[in-house]
C-alpha cells in the first residue's frame, strides 16, 4: 500500500491510479459489486469511461473522491492513497486536488456565480488573498460576465460554465465529471464537453469523464468501457462462480 509523504505527492507521475478496487453495494433497490482492476490517468490526461446508466459510474467517482469507502484496493490521487487519510485530512485533500462536475451542476443556490467559485477556493490550498481575482478571471475566461448574479438567475448554459469554473478553480490534479451532458441536447453537449476539456487543459488537470452518451466519445483520445476494467456485476451466480 502506497502512503506517500505529502511532499512526494506532487512528484507522482500519475494523477490518478485505481488498483484492485472492490466495492459491494447493497441497497433497497438491489445491489451490485463494482470492480476496477487497474485504472491509471497520467497528469493532464483526459479519458472517457463509458458505462450503461446505473452501472456504478457515480459510485466509482465518489469512491475516488473519498466520499465512500471501498471494501478493498487502493485509490491514489497524485500518489497518495485517498482512503489512508481520515476525516478532515481527506476532506482537505479532496478540496485541494479533486474537482467534481455533476449532471445537475449542484451549484450553491442563493449564492452568486462568483461565490460559487469562491466556495471551492475556501477549502483549497490557494492563499485567501488570491481567491477573488482568481475566481473572477476564471469566470471571465469561461464567458460569464455578470459575476454577481445569483446562479439560479443564470441560463442552464451559464450554470454549466459556473460549475466548470468551480471544478477547476483550485487547479486540481484530477477533475471527475459525472454525466456532465446528460441533460443537454447533442449540440450543447458538444459545447459543454469542449469547455470542460479546455478548462482542464489550461489548469493542467487530468479529466475522468463518465458517461453513457456515445455522441461525446469522439472528443476523447482515450475511451474505455467500465466493464473492461472489471465492471459492475450483480451479486449472485456470477459472484459465486469466481
Amino acid at each position: 500500500m502506497t502512503n506517500a509523504e505529502p511532499a512526494a505527492a506532487h512528484h507522482a507521475t500519475s494523477a490518478l491510479r485505481v488498483s484492485n478496487l472492490r466495492f459491494a453495494y447493497r441497497g433497497a433497490d438491489g445491489g451490485f459489486t463494482l470492480r476496477v482492476h487497474d485504472l491509471t490517468l497520467a497528469r493532464g490526461e483526459q479519458m472517457l469511461l463509458s458505462a450503461t446508466s446505473g452501472g456504478g459510474k457515480s459510485t466509482l467517482l465518489q469512491l475516488i473522491a473519498g466520499l465512500m469507502e471501498p471494501d478493498s484496493g487502493t485509490i491514489e490521487v497524485l500518489g497518495r492513497n485517498v482512503h489512508a487519510m481520515r476525516g478532515a485530512a481527506r476532506d482537505r485533500y479532496r478540496g485541494a486536488h479533486i474537482g467534481m462536475i455533476f449532471q445537475t451542476f449542484n451549484l450553491l443556490q442563493g449564492f452568486t456565480a462568483l461565490e460559487n467559485v469562491l466556495a471551492a477556493l475556501m477549502f483549497s490550498e490557494v492563499p485567501p488573498g488570491e481567491h477573488r481575482a482568481r475566481a473572477a478571471a476564471l469566470l471571465t475566461s469561461l464567458g460569464i460576465t455578470r459575476h454577481e448574479r445569483l446562479v439560479e438567475q443564470l441560463s442552464v448554459g451559464q450554470q454549466q460554465r459556473v460549475a466548470v469554473a468551480r471544478a477547476v478553480a483550485c487547479s486540481p490534479a484530477v477533475v471527475l465529471a459525472d454525466e456532465p451532458t446528460a441533460s443537454l441536447d447533442p449540440e450543447n453537449a458538444g459545447v459543454a464537453i469542449g469547455l470542460i476539456q479546455q478548462a482542464c487543459r489550461e489548469k493542467g488537470a487530468a479529466l475522468l469523464c463518465v458517461s453513457h452518451d456515445p455522441a461525446i466519445a469522439a472528443r476523447f483520445e482515450r475511451v474505455q468501457k467500465l466493464a473492461d476494467l472489471g465492471g459492475a456485476t450483480s451479486p449472485g451466480p456470477q459472484e459465486a462462480a469466481r
Binding site: D91, R92, R94, N106, L107, A119, F123
Partner: peptide, 15 residues
C-alpha cells in the same frame, strides 16, 4: 444538497 456540495468542495464534517 448544499451541505453535500460543501463536503465535495472540501469542507470537513466538523466544519
Amino acid at each position: 444538497r448544499q451541505i453535500a456540495v460543501l463536503r465535495v468542495l472540501g469542507a470537513s464534517q466538523p466544519r
